[in-house]
Design a binder for these strands. Sequence first.
DNA 1: GTCTATAGCGGGATAGAC
DNA 2: GTCTATCCCGCTATAGAC
Lengths: 203, 203
Amino acid sequence: MKQPVSEVRERILDVARELFIKNGYKGTSVRDIAAASETNVAMVNYYFHSKYNLFEIIFEEAFNRLQKKIFSTLSSDLPFFELIETVIDSYYEMLMEYPQIPIFILNEINQNPERLSERMREKDPHGVFLQMSKRIKEEEKKGVIKETPPIDFLLNILSLCVFPFIFKNLGSNVAKVSQREYSEMIVNHKKYVIQFVINALKK
Amino acid sequence: MKQPVSEVRERILDVARELFIKNGYKGTSVRDIAAASETNVAMVNYYFHSKYNLFEIIFEEAFNRLQKKIFSTLSSDLPFFELIETVIDSYYEMLMEYPQIPIFILNEINQNPERLSERMREKDPHGVFLQMSKRIKEEEKKGVIKETPPIDFLLNILSLCVFPFIFKNLGSNVAKVSQREYSEMIVNHKKYVIQFVINALKK
DNA sequence: GTCTATAGCGGGATAGAC
DNA sequence: GTCTATCCCGCTATAGAC
């Protein structure tokens, strides 16, 4: 019994997504994908031309999701400290739902940095960085916050939000807690991070 | 003319360190190492048995140095804020020398989490975490700093120190700066991080 | 559209002569 | 200790039968 256009294609795509997220690009072979999707190597290359092309389709999907979420938060017109809180909230919310994404992205940076960053540059239609810089400048002028270089500040936000998820595997092992316990710990950690950042900003 | 015990071994080790740092573990082949050290593949395996073992020797070297440095800082009697500054300094100094280490660790985690975390647990013979907790408690009592859960605080320190290096490849491309410029940027970023952390702590 | 079979490459590791 | 030659593996990709 045959599904619409290509049930096989979908099956390969689903399996590949799972494997790429779990094992990364280099850690996933076309043979793995073929076996897990109960097809064969030739089928994967028939539908997707190459392993890299297949990877790109899946990567795009994950990447768009993350981008959309973060950008819509950053572009809102909330009061400054609430904006900060919401940005951090959004990162954590997103990353708790898709904890594999940072590892997925970071693992593959080495693979093709030019191409990936080309994409990221394309995907900044609202000038989020400029908008954020403007908000920071305003608050500096008001004397509410300390002198805050936008790049350094945003890098700190990114570090504080993303690293705990990257560190999850190692951290839970070293601390001898289950991944589940670590995840619960992260919820509390988020609250500390928000306070930490706001304290660091305040004059 | 022959050098002491094995001039060749040292040469291989030096070249390997350089290549691993520059191109990462997977990006460096034993053939590359052989060529650059003007020996051959057999020599590399004669002295180091395997590529993985060779890398581990280099990894161990860096890890031990960091460990030693952090501990000597923690057990010093520096004033608390200077202690924080020195710890952050040490992390950045080490990571600027071995920027590939975090990425190697990340890749290792996916492949063999048990082995790596076993090692890291072994390497805390002096109780860095306990030392730090003690100092934090003292400063809390003095009323100098806010309430500061040690785990969350240390995770923040780690995030702020390690993430910029993980992000290096992607970040430098997105910001359209060379890796070299990014590295220079990181030196300034470190200064901001130190101020950021100290402000966040202060009551 | 599906599959088998294999080409062709590049990797790590090793045997064995010197 | 050193080197050449080679093994064996896994990978991507494709040719060609059905």
